[in-house]
Every structure is written in structure tokens, then in C-alpha cells.
Design a protein around this nucleic acid. Structure first.
Lengths: 130, 130
DNA sequence: CTTGCTTGTATCTAAGTATGATACAATAGT
DNA sequence: ACTATTGTATCATACTTAGATACAAGCAAG
């Protein structure tokens, strides 16, 4: 199940994209699976159908999904780029992680706490795959 | 030195807040240090003074900075909440990390790569402090 | 004390973005 | 054919960002 916050500063479609990315990354949604129709997911989440459509489109552009009008939307891949990671992507990811960790520290989280949290997440994500 | 991207999808003031949070978290800027005046930092970064002022205000609201008109802005703390971490904060941090890691995986980054990156970041942040 | 300079703050505006209401178009089944 | 289901496009509204500009408070020199 996907949950999004209407009061978060981050846009709904971004939240949805991240949530779906996460589920695809950890295998909750596998390659070949069908995603719910935009109207249904929109109704479930209590948001507009366009917002869901936009999230689907962004993931389609990223090469993870494929949408066909009248049929539906399917997961076609779980990796954006089969080849190596570009320097820009690496930098982007690194700064995202740095920001998250800085927040964790400033919030008063201990090193041990954050380390166990990370271990858990990594185990979940890289349970299979590279 | 702080660098921000004018073309990033994330707002300038958010970038600045995260950057300053990071520097405060890892000790690059210590408690008691003065931050540059809004006009100077704005000029250095090539952005508007209001944007810097907003970033300062947000960190002030978070309890990390103190601003006095006519005098300047000083770092007054390096932890937002001396006490324990709230459940909401923990959830917020956890999902931020989950998103970052999901992106890393989908970008094709290997488990080993991400683990060494994390180790490095943690070592830098928790070099001192809790 | 007054003047001038430095500092943060408030107000206003233009441009962009997010979200939603609604209409359109393609596919599949009956 | 016709109808239901699906994604897509168009348009409108509200909010957010980022900047230009004006205001206000502290401090030091005279």
C-alpha cells in the first residue's frame, strides 16, 4: 500500500514517484506487474487523476513503466540504466544521502541508531539484484 | 564554501538550508560562529538577498541560528532537539533515506558502492558529537 | 546626539509549478 | 456497433518561488 502526505512540502507526484520507485526497487512490485488504473489509484489516495497520471508518465520517461491507453500501465524494468552510473547521478545521490544524514544528526539521532536503520534498508533493497 | 545549483528542481532556499545544516552537522561551522550577512552570501551565490534571509529564518525557527537586525546571524546550536527523536521525525528521516537509497539502486548502483559511500558520510558527520 | 553604515525584515510583483475539473482518444470486450 | 475502461490532453485556479525595493534596528565615528 502506498501512503502520501497532503501536507508535505514535497509535491504529491514526487511523493508518488518516490514511493513507486521504492516498491519497484525492493521488489514489492515486480517487472511485469500491472499498476492500478490512474482513476483507481487516485481515488484510493484521495488525489486527482492527473497527479497519478503524471507520476506514471515520469516513471515511463525514466524507462521503468510502459503505459498504453485503453489497456493500462505495466512495470517493464527495475533499473533505469543498465550501464554504469554517471558522475552526475552519483553526485546527485550522494548529496541526497548527505542531506538526509545531516538531518538525522541534527535531529539528535545517534550514530548507532542511524547505522542500524541503514543496514535494515540496504538489506531490504539489495535482497536481490546487484 | 557553499555551492547551490540554479537548475536543480529543489528550491534555492531549501538547497541553502540543507547545505548549512550539513556544515553545522559536520562541524565545518561551529556553535558561536557568525554567518555571513545576507547580502554578502547572496552576492557570493549569485542569488537574491531574500532567499538567503529565508534560509536563515528557517534555520532560526528550527533553533539552530539566531539573527539580530543590525548585528548579524550566529549559530547557537548544532542539534534541533536535545531530547530524543520524535516518531514523526524518525519516520521523516527514514523515508528520506529510503528514497535516496531506492534512487541509488534504480540508478544501477551496487550494494558495495553505496555501502562505502555511506560509511564515508557517517564517518564525516559523527566524527564528534553523539 | 546625530549621522552614516551595516545588519536583518517586510512588502510587493512577475513567473513558474502543482493540483484539480473536464473533455478527448484509444483499446477491449459484448 | 456500442459501451466500458484506460491513458492523455487542455484549461483554470491557487500556491510557491525568487527577485526588486523599501523599511527598521543596531553600532560606531564625529
Amino acid at each position: 500500500m502506498i501512503t502520501i502526505s497532503l501536507h508535505s512540502p514535497v509535491p504529491l507526484h514526487d511523493q508518488l514517484v518516490e514511493a513507486l520507485r521504492g516498491k519497484i526497487a525492493d521488489g514489492s512490485i515486480a517487472v511485469g506487474d500491472e499498476l492500478p488504473p490512474v482513476r483507481q489509484l487516485a481515488a484510493d489516495l484521495g488525489i486527482n487523476l492527473n497527479t497519478v497520471a503524471r507520476a506514471y508518465r515520469e516513471l515511463t520517461d525514466a524507462g521503468l513503466l510502459a503505459s498504453v491507453r485503453g489497456r493500462g500501465t505495466v512495470v517493464i524494468s527495475d533499473t533505469e540504466k543498465p550501464a554504469g552510473v554517471s558522475a552526475e547521478d552519483r553526485k546527485r545521490i550522494e548529496s541526497a544521502i548527505a542531506a538526509a544524514l545531516a538531518n538525522a544528526k541534527i535531529a539528535g539521532m545517534s550514530r548507532k541508531t542511524i547505522e542500524s536503520m541503514l543496514e535494515q534498508q540496504i538489506k531490504r533493497l539489495w535482497k536481490f539484484g546487484t
